[in-house]
Design a protein around this nucleic acid. Structure first.
Lengths: 244, 244
DNA sequence: CGAGCCGTTGAGGGGATTCAAGCTCAGTGG
DNA sequence: CCACTGAGCTTGAATCCCCTCAACGGCTCG
């Protein structure tokens, strides 16, 4: 791992987190991307970079939040339990997204946040943002942008994934998952019961839909489970047929 | 209309909007509730208080936003049109809510905002908030709170109104509408096709559900249309029966 | 008073759920 | 090495809820 690309003043700051932050590929697009080098310099000591295994909970709904997180890698889901006792998955977050922003307002987390895949995070204590926020206007703007993005994402899920036939919803979900795909074209494939809770259908329906789309050549399950390759062109074709 | 309760320095500022703002019953709970009298003094000239009739659109999705609005009275709905061409109502806003916050980030409005009832608004130009925002920390916090509230509301709709049987969703909607009820206990009753687009069911299903609940004594339609009285205790009873 | 909008109700069909049974596959221990 | 086990996935059959199509009544308004 070379540090040749780094500005010299960042290479030898002494604090181990300094290098991690400076090298972070996500930073430019993330919350602290708005900070200049001087601002960045002051925060290393307070930032942690925890990792969560798939299935682990990052925080719980109702918990008094003390930190906000940037997702550096992996996929996080937001979920709630309905009064009826069933789980509802509300939306996903991935690389570059900010989660748990409620904490900045001293409010309890409003959803459960759970790792779907292995997840790398960047933990930012609430008071750190408060301190910086009073100086850096750019940071505040960046923060509001992220709030709006989350809202937009939530509303998009309502329109795309919670309406229409099971078939259409499944297609929309695959389309969305494909957007989170990594370099080799493979994207994360949720378990069938997770799909069910995202689309508000049963496990069986989710399974039937995926199986059908597999026969139609729209998705191909990759060995090792939990991963798949989506043929976006074929998907779009099927989606268009639906409307007709 | 008496001005006796007003601080003297607000009574005779000369600008007609000064009195309107100072008397506004919503202000203490609204965005500018965070401003002190001095801050408030500077904004009158820029604020308008438009009224929209039921059915009128306040702004359109995609439009370049130049203003944000506080809802002073009435009910506003946020809607989008799905690719399939059907309308989806995403959530509601009412007295005290801030709508169109995207404009503050120089982003296009992300939904259509339409008046459900007659609506009184308070129009706040984007640049005005920018100006004040750079000074008033309290205002910024208030702003973020509203963003979070909107997000929370959107996610609550997903869990409550977009999941479960048509019956359960209808009950949840009535429960929600009852929370917006006015003093006399009457609450706004949407048209059946509006209910349909809120719950993602057909007009017929919406009608059948309401009719059934009417027979069950859960709601009573009030003369003059568009209004109803909800028996919350009975509603809760029916809701509990559903689970069993 | 006819036109149009809105709400209601019925009949029939279809898509999703429910209930149930096998299947694959990875992990475990004999 | 391989039966055993359990979790996750798939598939079938019956049922039911909601959608579709259709007709009709009340109401407002030109």
């Amino acid at each position: 791992m070379s540090t040749a690309r780094l500005p010299l003043y960042l290479v030898d700051t002494g604090h181990p987190q300094a290098r991690v932050c400076a090298e972070c590929g996500v930073r430019s697009g993330a919350l602290f991307g708005a900070l200049d080098a001087a601002g960045l310099e002051r925060i290393h000591a307070h930032i942690a970079a925890p990792v969560r295994a798939a299935g682990e909970r990052i925080y719980a709904r109702g918990e008094a939040g003390t930190a906000v997180y940037t997702v550096r890698a992996g996929i996080v889901r937001f979920e709630r339990v309905t009064e009826g006792g069933s789980r509802r998955i509300l939306r996903l977050a991935s690389r570059g997204d900010l989660i748990g922003q409620e904490a900045l307002l001293a409010r309890p987390y409003s959803d459960d946040a759970v790792a779907c895949t292995e997840v790398e995070l960047c933990r930012i204590p609430q008071d750190l943002v408060d301190t910086l926020g009073s100086e850096a206007a750019a940071l505040r703007r960046e923060l509001m942008l992220r709030w709006q993005r989350a809202l937009d994402e939530a509303e998009s899920w309502s329109t795309d994934l919670a309406a229409g036939s099971a078939r259409r919803r499944t297609l929309k979900l695959l389309q969305l998952l494909a957007r989170h795909a990594d370099a080799d074209g493979g994207s994360w494939m949720p378990r069938r019961d997770e799909i069910g809770d995202m689309l508000d259908v049963t496990v069986e329906t989710a399974s039937r839909q995926i199986s059908q789309l597999r026969r139609d050549g729209v998705v191909e399950l990759l060995p090792g489970g939990r991963r798949a390759r989506v043929d976006l062109a074929a998907l779009q074709r099927v989606l268009d047929d639906e409307d007709a």
